[in-house]
Write a protein that binds this DNA or RNA. Structure first.
Lengths: 256, 256
DNA sequence: CGGCCAATTGATTAAACTCAATCTGCGTGG
DNA sequence: CCACGCAGATTGAGTTTAATCAATTGGCCG
């Protein structure tokens, strides 16, 4: 993990786009949000930059790339708990020891911002609108993980895969990273297997099945959602858990 | 004035016992924590008191009894996302619409305290130690749910059940509700099945298997942990995700 | 051209599910 | 006090989904 400081971009960061897509942010708030992201790190694809049991040095905000929170249980079995996409936090809340309960591994090259705990406090004390945004992010992460539990516990392989694809499509869309009906998809089928609790062989067959049914197309690093309505119906997908809105991003908090 | 953890009165509420078991709480903090629990509700066993999609009216603190956060997907399938025990919150963080992403259902008669959003804000602004306690509770809930994902995605039926039993044993112990080597267990085998992503028939056979191996005994509403060490070894159970403290050596497993 | 990682396919096995009966403990109304 | 009803637990038999084992193929890069 190589660390370098960079100057402010003119374009809004993913976290600003994400929060801005749901709340009306004032210029001051956006500025602050951008200003706390100056301490940047680049993480190489494949790098496990947070180890289970080790101490969080700071909170990460993903600026670009995909990260997997995962648990490796001794005998080679692995479960991807959740995926962190641009605009997401790693280690926003920590326990008293700041001890990680999972590995965080870069699935692509990643750019992240390192946020000091004091800056998070500052948000809570001086930027109430942003603080409510953090609260929203927190409950959203929890709900995403809840859906993951439903997928793993009660859905078939085809339901799991189509549900995951739709979740990623909606989440990427919120930060402006989804195509009209496609997403870039950097995960290997092994990764998908470990995200969905399947063997890699079965993950492969499940991809093939969705393709055969005319629901998706996929290549090395893209998935095309050919028939979103059928995908939703197969997956039993309701996007409510992602926003808490009736699918319509609407500003509900006015400028301070 | 600061008081020792052990000197918390036995009449202190579960949430005070839980936080007091981990942080040194001042008398003022304990008093405040108790005072915000005056608005109490009784919830009858079987009552789904929060509906998926409906609005949270307040935050609940469970004072006694067990609650399941669960998702019911149209066709009769159900997944218990997580269990809330005495001292746990329901709806601590909410999204902008305060919309629940899951049902909350009482698995026993429950007593809960209703906390106004303004009191939660008050904690963050005036009781920094308690605020850090809430942050700890938040990340703990997330980590518990992460373990649930590992159970559902990557563990066998016997591993899942023994892991769940151990988790509940440790969590109940933290609030003084576990026996020396037993817990009260109000869930039906149907509930266990829906928590572990199994059929009820298989849940039953898994109970039988653990009993046959001399790991547990169970009756209508108790589970005895006959051989905790063997249970831990079978489950692959490491309590780190529950506390984040070094109460016990935490081996960091490295898979090469 | 190799080498390598990921994807794909075929064959077989195993874990868990479904379906269908019972069985059991317990509370209740007569 | 007892028969009845009922929810939950238990058991047996057969089926299904997904896992495992074992090659093979495909694409990309140095």
């Amino acid at each position: 993990m190589e660390i370098k400081n960079e100057s402010l971009h003119s374009e809004a960061s993913a976290i600003s786009r994400k929060l801005g897509g749901l709340i009306l942010l004032s210029a001051t708030e956006v500025e602050f949000l951008e200003s706390i992201q100056n301490n940047r790190v680049r993480i190489e694809k494949g790098d496990t930059f947070v180890q289970e049991g080790s101490e969080f040095l700071a909170t990460f905000i993903i600026r670009s790339g995909w990260v997997a929170r995962e648990r490796n249980i001794g005998d080679g079995r692995r479960q991807i708990i959740s995926l962190a996409l641009p605009g997401d936090f790693i280690g926003l809340h920590v326990n008293f020891k700041r001890q990680a309960a999972y590995d965080a591994k870069a699935m692509t090259d990643v750019e992240a911002a390192l946020i000091e705990p004091s800056r998070v406090l500052e948000i809570h004390q001086q930027y109430p609108v942003l603080a409510s945004g953090l609260s929203w992010s927190t409950v959203r992460e929890y709900n995403i993980l809840g859906e993951q539990a439903v997928r793993l516990g009660r859905k078939s392989a085809t339901e799991r895969l189509s549900h995951l694809i739709l979740e990623l499509y909606h989440r990427l869309d919120l930060v402006g990273l989804a195509g009209p009906e496609s997403i870039t998809f950097p995960l290997t089928q092994d990764d998908v297997a470990d995200a969905l609790g399947l063997s890699s062989v079965h993950a492969n067959r499940t991809f093939k099945e969705l393709k055969k049914r005319g629901l998706i197309e996929y290549s090395r690093d893209d998935i095309e959602l050919i028939d979103i309505e059928k995908l939703k119906s197969l997956a039993g997908f309701n996007p409510a858990f992602l926003s808490g809105f009736d699918n319509e991003p609407q500003p509900v908090v006015k400028v301070g």
